[in-house]
Amino acid sequence: MHLDPFELHRPRSVEEAVRLASELSGQCDYLAGGTDLLPNYKMHLNLRPHLIALEDIPELRGHSFERLGAMERLADLEGDPAFRAAYPGIQDAVGEVATPLVRASGTVGGNLLVETRCFFFNQSFFWRASLGFCLKADGDRCHVVPQKERCYATFSGDLAPSLLVLDADVEVAGPSGRRRLPLSGLYDAAGDGIRRTRLAPGELLVAVHLPPSARGQRAGYKKLRVRPSFDFPELGVAVAGRWDGTRVESLRIAVGGVETYPRRFDALTDPLAGAPLSEEALGRVASEVMRGVRPVHNTFLLPDYRRRVVEVYVRRAVREAREGSAA
């Protein structure tokens, strides 16, 4: 399977990359690890004539307890025992991404911005042409929920929920400079499977910043999928919290893999602070999260089932976090 012609650019700095993207306005993609973009290119999904490889930009590399470079390889996070100890929830999620081979190339930024997925989208040009193209690539209709306005492709990154519950920020560079925003603000709740982030055209994800409060939380990530490797999440539940004895100090829950963007459920968890969490209250929260998500039938497992498991995984993830040792 060859790739259609494109021009590859290899900027040496964030500013150069952003300038290039601005000059090539709309005619380029950033290339991080390539494990998401290149299969999509091989399937002729939304090709651009220019690729801006982020390989040679030192600033995008490296990780510390405070900062994850966008181009940091997932395998490098996985292979750092100190990081694992500090952020068990992130580590759970990283270790569940795709396969070890994908994690060897795949990056933090690539996973946060992984293309949304759908049975009708992640198919070859031949397959899509034979059915009629969809909204998300080359067409004007959605085959999942038949209409012409909204795309229902599913957000399928594992890292985002685990970072959302830690109140991570992201640093973004664009033609008009840099800005920092909460990770939760990166994803567009008002968007859809196509308009899924609030990044402006040409904006580049530079790094994830973890606040001091992120460390030492009890956290975990549970992923539903058919096989323990390869598969994208059919559901991902991340939890992080602090307990003082049995009393909840703070608790956050985020869910990915069921809608077009990953999201947190602060309205359900904020009221829990300050008191012990009874099984009844936990059950209520879990049911509410379940009721709050609206998966559609565009992945392997049926949407009703995925919702059912939301309830179970939320309960379990919270319980395991509570009982797990703090870092």
């Binding site: 049975f119 198919q123 070859s124 397959w127 058919v226 096989r227 323990p228 490797s229 390869f230 598969d231 392997f300």
Partner: peptide, 13 residues
């Protein structure tokens, strides 16, 4: 599911 990603051959685990 004409792909090895969506055709679910079991993993070692």
């Amino acid at each position: 599911n004409p792909s090895l990603l969506e055709y679910k051959i079991p993993m070692p685990q």
